[in-house]
Design a protein around this nucleic acid. Structure first.
Lengths: 216, 216, 216, 216
DNA sequence: AATGAATGAGGTTTCATTCAT
DNA sequence: GATGAATGAAACCTCATTCAT
């Protein structure tokens, strides 16, 4: 789930030069990185355009405004998270393993940035709404994967637990990428796997579940 | 630890008018709120000055620059967190209870904002350094309170575990304040206490420790 | 004179698609409307192209630049006014009637827009020169139609009087179309015919001429 | 009425340097000239600021935006016209003489520009509304001065006649200032007084009134 | 000490125009 | 001949900062 580390179709570094779709992809790609790492306000459209190797005016041409580009980033991240998340019940231990992998990819991988982006606000109504809905939708997916059943009465706690797991992921990714705090910033899978597995286990599988070291 | 809900010394709403120290306090107080909630770039010095009921030029007079004010906020938050944290070993269950209370105070309380501030960056070298050191120092304090002993070999995991606890706190506070994501945004102590207690318990007290519902 | 409500040659709504001349006509037609109503600067070439159902780049292809298109509009309006104006002496009362009709057609008709266009400036030397010459030429025509004879000494006053008549027409058209000022904006022939006839009469026929209600 | 050629209080060419009110006056003064002669869109805020000898940012500081400055120009022109117009019935022949003087001042005087400004549109709702209302209010004043009585039934024609007089003034001023059309552009009082007097006379005093040459 | 006027750098956006297809 | 992608200049505006009172 989450990021399967599937090679992206738009990974090309050189654009063909006159392909609108490719240009838009390059812009979104560059923008997402900047927005996630530097925040909305600190990012300038000139930086984004330069990163994408594209003229600045094209941002307005294709996305109306800086906010429009941000919204496009949100939508795309939302869609990708959606398509990468299992829709039904999943095996708990493999689910947890995936969550851990997602966090551990930071700070170099592209996937954790997608989560970080969901914490950034542009002040734009639409974008903030998408952000909130994406996080809530993602919560539900995670809860379902963990065996949550909407028909059972009083299942709110399970949703909340799933959300705490997401919060933990977000917090860890922030400390690793944005703050660069040691020791968590330079910790690898061997260091993080154990404790993170316990946290996710106790949140998603309940106290009774085995909370030992996760499988490698 | 953290915020003891001690009445702040600068709670006064009307400044004396010609008291440099009071003016500086009012500025830091107002700035910290804005920086924490809106981020560094989205906050304007005019907003801060207006909130503090002070002329804008005084920011530069007392703090050199906007970044200087930000750095002062960092320092002050760092100091406050320091003075509010127990320096020695502490009772695990009461420690956890405090951590939970700190998170639950959000989004209205003043305390969680101090944590949020630690995630904000101004791009300034000094401020970011203070931020990193504060978080690392805070990590150590928490580990010590949880019984960590620097003399024991291979204690890195315990530091990491404390940091994961901090990450969880930060993540939850962000979801509650900045993103406003449901259900966690409107959850109260009764909802959050249980799961959060389990997470903190398994991280700080180890798997063997009792991870049931925390004392009220 | 002026607009004889002759059916325009380019009234077709669908262009043949690959007819350069038709494309140019459509562009000038659309441009003239926009320039006259919105002014030169407020009009964008994209609006014009969209109105004409034509690709934007064709404006530069056929007219070199936006100013070139403006100049073409001026020239065309100049020519049309020229071909629609009687070259010799005309019956005063029917002449006046035509002037009134021209004004009254506003704000919906196409004719007053041609006059409005003559008041718009693009800052371009050439276009402004055409404008000035057109207005002066038009003045002369009107004076001739009113019985002016270039051979008579000291005939400047008659030219001036003809120009005042044109000024009145322009002023009224502006108030009706651009400013939308009441009551003149919604006045019809029955309201305007009388006073306008008097003004034109006293200017073109002299104080001794009958200045009563114009013929219907 | 209209412009009494009273020496303006803000005629100073050098601002005192640190006087907010003077700066605002200088900006409005410079802006009004530019807007009236070049139009709203063709005028840049930098030009205005340069003309006023002031930093560009002060436009936004004092008037919120370019449109705000335009609106301020409209309001000021509206007020000045208002205060310069007699509120009651006036002697017809002296009234006409004033109207003529107002027109003749162009193209060098400051007064005709105020009228021209009333024909410019910024696209802004508020400013355009002010413009319309000013013109309509000015119409009423003129009608009253010409002996119009609101109690008499069916007096609409008199309003309309007053508006035609205004239209003529506007048209003449445009031809003189904006278009520079000969011979009207270089005509003086001796040339314009006669015909203009006749037009105003026949519009405001009726056909029976003496429409000879105005007194010098 | 404090105020508010003034400044300059930099940000986003618009728009006429040119370049490949 | 026609299209749409791409470009660069310039416009308006914001904002941290400095200056004069």
């Amino acid at each position: 789930m989450l990021a399967e580390t599937v090679p992206h179709a738009d990974d090309e570094l050189v654009r063909s030069g006159r392909d609108a779709a490719a240009t838009q992809r390059a812009l979104v790609r560059a923008a997402r990185r900047r927005f996630a790492t530097d925040g909305y306000r600190a990012t300038t459209v000139r930086q984004i355009a330069a990163d994408a190797g594209v003229n600045v005016a094209l941002i307005n041409r294709y996305f109306e405004s800086k906010e429009g580009l941000f919204e496009a980033c949100m939508k795309r991240t939302s869609n990708e998270l959606d398509s990468q998340t299992p829709t039904g019940t999943s095996d708990i231990s493999s689910l947890i393993e995936r969550l851990i992998a997602h966090v551990v990819n930071a700070p170099d991988g592209d996937d954790p940035l997608q989560l970080l982006l969901l914490l950034r606000s542009s002040g734009d109504e639409n974008a903030d709404c998408i952000r909130r809905r994406t996080l809530e939708h993602f919560t539900q997916r995670l809860a379902v994967a963990a065996g949550w059943n909407a028909d059972v009465p009083d299942t709110a706690p399970i949703l909340l637990r799933a959300q705490l797991a997401i919060a933990t992921m977000l917090g860890v990714v922030m400390l690793r990428t944005s703050a660069g705090v040691q020791p968590v910033a330079s910790a690898g899978f061997d260091d993080l796997g154990g404790p993170l597995g316990q946290v996710f286990g106790i949140l998603l599988a309940g106290p009774g579940a085995p909370s030992g070291t996760p499988p490698r």
